[in-house]
Design a protein around this nucleic acid. Structure first.
Lengths: 140, 140
DNA sequence: TTGCGGCTTGGACCATAGTCCAAGGTCAAC
DNA sequence: GTTGACCTTGGACTATGGTCCAAGCCGCAA
């Protein structure tokens, strides 16, 4: 019976034990081996798997996208193009979000510049802008 | 007893009736007048208020930030600088998020370019990168 | 053998911004 | 006088990624 229990494992990958159990519930980690007493036992492949997950999160993938990537990796019929699809969707998503945020920060900066700091709020161009009937709201 | 009931009101501002009730529960809208039968009645000031909310959402503010903005607007001691503070925090947040997303999309693009489309997944540089022990994960 | 830390489970809870539902009251039209 | 559209309430549910909790084992050391 080799492997380490959940506390040491979680520490090794830098997450909480709850997170490990959560990944298991969520299907991201396979049901681990158990000791006679029922303690979960993790090995190097689990270690690698959690590191994969954290790294993918760092690249903006959601857990369900990561599950898809892990499934592709495990498949013997999948092609690199399948992974590329997932990646390109994420790229497109990031770019769309960047342009949305650029629009927002540009608009806010413009309003912020006009703001007469010492004036009472009634003179605030930011509030005036928000109160203005023009300019469309957006589906956020 | 003037005013319109929730259905017409919601339609006028382009949201669902549930959303209007939700805003009320959340403190964004004041408890409205009621008909004898208990129906909510909305007037022009409510209309303006919901439009303010939707517009602020379009600028990336969360509902609790919007509640703060509305409180500032209603205050007779607040200064324009107070609104500016909220705005500048949002700008900083947007910029931080943009740079995070730029990092992500740049990394993904670089990986995507190296991807040999017809190869089996075992040759996929994207998966190889994620499986690689180097490169730090990030707290997302 | 007692104590302490670590492990087990199921389930509740966090924030965000709603959405949906059931059971029942209201109102205008036909 | 009944149909159908609208309104009321409280509460549950959605997705996301965990976090926390209670009650109860397990294992090792003093």
């Amino acid at each position: 019976m080799t492997g380490i229990t959940i506390g040491a494992f979680a520490k090794a990958v830098g997450v909480r034990t709850d997170t490990i159990r959560y990944y298991e519930r969520d299907g991201l980690l396979p049901p681990p081996a158990r000791t006679a007493a029922g303690y979960r036992l993790y090995d190097d492949s689990d270690l690698e798997r959690v590191r994969f997950i954290r790294k993918a999160q760092g690249l903006g993938f959601t857990l369900s996208e990561i599950a898809a990537l892990l499934a592709l990796r495990a498949s013997d019929t999948a092609r690199a193009a399948d992974v590329l699809d997932v990646t390109e969707r994420k790229i497109a998503e990031s770019i769309a979000r960047i342009s949305e945020l650029s629009r927002i920060s540009a608009a806010l900066k413009q309003l912020a510049e006009q703001c007469p700091v010492e004036a009472p709020v009634t003179d605030c161009p930011i509030l005036a802008h928000l109160a203005n009937t023009s300019t469309a709201p957006s589906k956020v």
